[in-house]
Lab assay of single mutants.
Amino acid sequence: VTTYKLVINGKTLKGETTTKAVDAETAEKAFKQYANDNGVDGVWTYDDATKTFTVTE
């Protein structure tokens, strides 16, 4: 299990959150659900070296 980070650069929501997941794909699903629940819809990137997803509106 690895800790992944999400950086949110939204129009109305900015911040960070983390999740523990077995792989990046599982973390991405959780983060996309989180973003959707919070009304954030943007461009996604992922940096494997830092295990960090970024979504920018």
Rank of each mutant, 00 (worst) to 15 (best):
A30R: 08
T26W: 06
E57F: 08
T17L: 14
E28F: 15
K20W: 12
V43E: 12
K14L: 08
N36E: 12
G39L: 05
F53K: 00
T19P: 01
G10Q: 06
D41P: 04
Y4S: 01
A49T: 12
A35Q: 02
T26G: 06
W44G: 00
K32L: 08
T19I: 14
F53C: 00
G39V: 03
V7D: 03
D23F: 05
K20V: 15
N36R: 14
D37V: 11
A24R: 15
V55K: 00
G10N: 06
N36S: 14
T12F: 14
I8L: 07
D47F: 04
E25F: 11
V1M: 13
T18N: 07
N38Q: 15
V7I: 15
I8G: 02
T3V: 12
K11C: 10
A30P: 02
T52Y: 03
Y46R: 02
K51T: 04
T54Q: 05
G42N: 02
F53P: 00
A35T: 08
T19C: 12
N9W: 13
T26F: 05
D41W: 12
Y34G: 01
K29S: 09
L13F: 15
E25Q: 13
T19Q: 06
V55Q: 01
T45I: 08
Y46Q: 01
D48I: 09
D37T: 10
A49V: 10
T17E: 05
A24N: 07
V1Y: 13
F53A: 00
G42P: 01
A35M: 08
I8V: 09
K29N: 06
Y46H: 02
A30H: 15
Q33S: 09
V1E: 15
I8D: 01
V43H: 11
K32P: 00
N38W: 14
K20R: 10
L6G: 01
A30S: 10
T54C: 06
A35E: 01
V22L: 11
N38R: 15
T12S: 13
Y34P: 00
D47Y: 04
Y4R: 00
A27S: 02
G42T: 02
E25V: 12
T3Q: 10
A30K: 12
D48A: 14
G42L: 03
T26K: 07
D23L: 05
E57R: 04
D23W: 04
Q33W: 05
T56P: 01
F31G: 00
F31Q: 00
G10A: 12
T12P: 04
K20L: 15
A27H: 00
K5V: 10
V43Q: 08
V1W: 12
F31H: 02
L13C: 13
Q33T: 08
T2F: 12
E25I: 14
G15R: 10
T3N: 08
N38A: 14
D48W: 06
W44R: 00
T50H: 07
K11T: 10
A21E: 04
Y34F: 11
T52E: 03
T54K: 04
N38P: 01
D47V: 05
F53Y: 06
K32H: 09
